[in-house]
Amino acid sequence: MLARARRELKNALRSARSALLPALLLAPSLCLMCAPQPAYAAQAGQVIVDTDIGDDIDDAFALGLLLNSPGFEILGFTSAWGDTGLRMQLLQRLLRETGHDGIPIARGIATTSMTPFTQARWAQRGSLPEPAPPAVDFLLRQIRQHPGQITLIALGPLTNIGAAITRDPATFGKLKRVVMMGGSVRAGYRKSEYAAPRPADKEYNIAADIPAAQKLFASGVPIVMMPLDSTQVRLDEVERGALFGHGSPLTDALTLLYHQWTDSYQPWSSTTPTLFDAVPVAYLADRGICPTTPLRIVVDQDGYTREQPGAPNAEVCLALDKRLFMELFMQRLLQ
């Protein structure tokens, strides 16, 4: 009797294991399907990027994020501020080495700049595209060809944009929107997210060409503004290590550009970059990263972006979801 009971118990356990095994094998899959997964929906479509790449390093990281993001049709890049020819060479080399050398590059209006071109040595090994169309001509031509479709991503001083408005305000008005990094509304520069922010500051991109900024905010074109309030997110050592060790053509280029930036004479800087210009690109990939508030923004004669009563002329992001931003940023660049 005892032997038979043992046999029946073994058979029952064996049957239970057979029934449970498929469920156990399926459980991890069910867990993965049930767990929240990042879902980023690109919002931009056709874009043109106006950039002063080569001074601070944030432009390079912003362009890296853009080039590695689906859902963007990049119609071209325009170089802005300072030595716009050398910026074109940097853009040409970056696009060539990352397999995007078919994207047009246009030469912006050259200006005097007191900001060090920190990545000049890397840029000098690029080629100056010939012929190099003027940025204003290129921008207005693209707007005429794609009325109401283009998002202009403005990552530097607004000289090219102001000139385009002056030349043909009606055509400029047919942009879908301008998404920009610039200004300071309720908080200024700060060295650490744990330190209290300064009051609103004169932000570099606005203060570099105040008349151009005033033209943009008076243009009537929809503006999405990412000021200092929401763009001072640091790329810390752990994230830098993951990116610089990744070994893709894009992360290799970003690594070299970063090290030239840190090797230059910048008494105000540190080895930890602030990703100001990556925030507008991330917003266009997922608007939840930087929710906006409608405000009326006026650029005063000193270059401050003042919040004033009246009809809103900009959607302004005043606070960043840092966790969501870093999740998207790292996921895209580590592809």
Rank of each mutant, 00 (worst) to 15 (best):
E8K: 14
K10L: 14
N11Q: 14
R14K: 15
R17P: 06
S18D: 14
L20I: 12
L20C: 11
L21N: 09
L21K: 14
A23R: 14
M33T: 08
P36Q: 07
Q37W: 08
Y40R: 06
A42I: 05
G54D: 09
D56M: 07
I57C: 05
I57G: 03
L63E: 13
L66W: 01
S69L: 05
G71W: 02
L75D: 07
T78E: 12
S79C: 09
S79I: 06
G82F: 08
D83H: 11
T84D: 09
T84P: 12
R93N: 08
E97Y: 04
E97D: 15
H100S: 12
H100N: 14
D101W: 10
I103C: 09
I105N: 07
A106H: 10
T111L: 11
T115Q: 13
A120Q: 15
A120V: 11
W122G: 05
A123I: 11
S127P: 04
A132W: 13
P133F: 01
P134V: 02
P134E: 13
F138D: 05
L139Y: 04
L140V: 10
R141Y: 08
I143W: 01
R144A: 14
A154K: 09
L155I: 06
N160R: 04
T166H: 08
A170Q: 15
F172T: 03
L175V: 08
K176L: 12
G182P: 09
S184P: 10
Y189A: 09
E193S: 10
A195D: 15
P199Y: 04
P199I: 03
Y204Q: 06
P211R: 00
L216T: 00
V221M: 02
V221P: 01
P222I: 02
P222S: 04
M225S: 00
M226R: 01
L228S: 07
D229S: 05
D229C: 05
D236K: 12
E237V: 13
V238G: 12
R240G: 10
R240D: 06
H246M: 05
S248M: 10
L250T: 13
D252C: 12
L254G: 07
T255S: 15
W261Y: 14
Q266L: 15
T274E: 10
D277A: 15
A278Q: 03
A278H: 04
V279Q: 01
I289Y: 00
I289V: 10
C290K: 00
P291N: 05
P294E: 08
V299Q: 00
G303T: 01
N313Y: 00
A319C: 08
D321Y: 02
F325I: 00
E327R: 04
M330T: 12
Q335V: 14
